[in-house]
Amino acid sequence: MLHIVACIKQVPDTKIIKMNPKTNTMDRASAPAILNPYDAHAVEEAVRLKKKYGGTVSVLTMGPPPAVKAIKKCIELGADEGYMISDRAFAGADTLATSYALTKALEKIAKHQPIDLVICGKMTIDGDTGQVGPGIARRLNIPPLTGVKKVVEINKEKGYAIVQRKLEDGYEVVKSTLPCLFTVEKEINDISFAPLPNMIKAARYQPTIWTADDLENVDRKQLGLKGSPTIVSKVWAPPKPEGGQLLEGTAQEQVNKLLSIIFEKKELFQ
């Protein structure tokens, strides 16, 4: 029986977010909070592996109280248990402090039920770094396998996993000892529709919520803003491009003008 934990985050939908042009900050109210799209694939994969090999899927998030909604979404997708760590002490965390807090929570979950596999998304659409997953793996001292696009085999008895890792021009097949950590690509699966019983379970579900005090052996200096080596010093709007010249005339004339512009770069067409 496998115990898989997916790390998930609630994020503002950056596709429709509005920026306050004066302060260059996000108007969070303008964007609905969603489950980070890559993390939905992480949960989906965990649930598929559970169906194939048997086991339990837990999800873990660090975030403010409303992030319970993202956990409920994961229950809909088929996760069994949800854990959330939520505390002002965690606020302002960069990737290093985030991976620290999440690792402390994973250690606590593992006491209860040892973990075979941790799955993270490739990246979050607000933090956008892809650094938290490998950070957790280092802290737990388990191998990080980033960019997983297919899980070939998991063998708990023999203690190994085989996956395909995406590269720039193809992929590689890697074998790792268990436990290990995957970060997954979107192409790893298609999200299934949530079956009705999951929806009902999700509606009623209440995750386990821990504060910093509930975690064990926590070094408070490593949490939140205090534990974050990186700081954002300045934000600004990207410079507005000036715009180009529109070609005029009939379609045929426009095409002719365009061709003469292109063919000026003679070296490309010899």
Binding site: L96, D128, T129, G130, Q131, G135, R138, T146, L167, T230
Partner: peptide, 21 residues
């Protein structure tokens, strides 16, 4: 893929800050 993988892992061990992309 390789640079990000390596940098994220080592940032945790050193430890130090890492800015992505």
């Amino acid at each position: 893929p390789t640079g990000k993988d390596l940098a994220s892992a080592i940032a945790t061990d050193l430890p130090t800050g890492l800015t992505a992309d």
